[in-house]
Amino acid sequence: MEFWQPQSLTEALEIREQGAEPVAGGTDLMVDLNFDRRRPKALLDLSQLPELREWDRVDGWLRLGAALTYTRAIAELGGLLPGLVLASRTVGSPQIRNRGTLGGNLATASPAGDALPPLMAAGAEVELVSRRGTRRLPLPAFLLGPKRSALADDELVAAVWVPPARGPQQFAKVGPRNAMVIAVCSLALDLDPERRRVGCAIGSVGPTVLRATEAERFLEGTLEESDWAALPAAAQGRFGELVAAAARPIDDLRGSAAYRRHALSVLARRCLAWAWTDGSWA
């Protein structure tokens, strides 16, 4: 096995084209190497590429470099992407958050990836780069199945593009404790009161992170009628039902499908109530 440490993205893409496996924080890949589950023919170390670690505002979007760690997202993006920050705080432990990256979460494409629901709820797009060029895919088009994505063999995740929050964002996750937990189910909510737009994405309840489209449309209608007054209790309940209906969960060792659906409807009602009463946006 070879270990390549390119000093520029151009050099990295040449090595990637020859089939090297990218590694940044190592929090997923090293587990597979330690347990002899995977033996890539070469490793491509992305940790020396400063261009992947930066984030910027570009054309009204936030462009977050793929090697941005959860720790830095928490420290630097609080006012801009509160949903992503809430989700990042639930990732692993301090040790994991110091190393794990947004690009790694995207490329691993687990339905339980904690950063994915808030990114999807906010309408994020993934920037993929290869020697052939650059393309941007909406997150739902990037995530194809459990640990399967549209990333081609010669591509790297360069960045994720996200619009800054225009209203309250919430995230909640169910698991046996507050740290080191793979989500049993999770939910991210993104409200844009001014444009009456709602984003809602759910994790660990399907082959990929999913959008709860009908629940979004229902809530957009409620936003229209309620004009940010008190949230009708019936609307909360209906929102929870529609979110649960969007789930496609399975029974596995972390929880049953029925439990996941139920817990998800509870998360939906809670996140909605928190977001609705978030005074900073009223």
Partner: peptide
């Protein structure tokens, strides 16, 4: 655990707390 679950291998790498079992050694060059 060799999978970052237990924290028993915690060290500081360039001042950051990490699980040494999840750091490719050659990244510490």
């Amino acid at each position: 655990c060799e999978q970052g679950e237990c924290g028993s291998c915690s060290v500081l790498l360039d001042g950051e707390l990490v699980c040494a079992c999840l750091v490719p050694a050659l990244q510490a060059q």
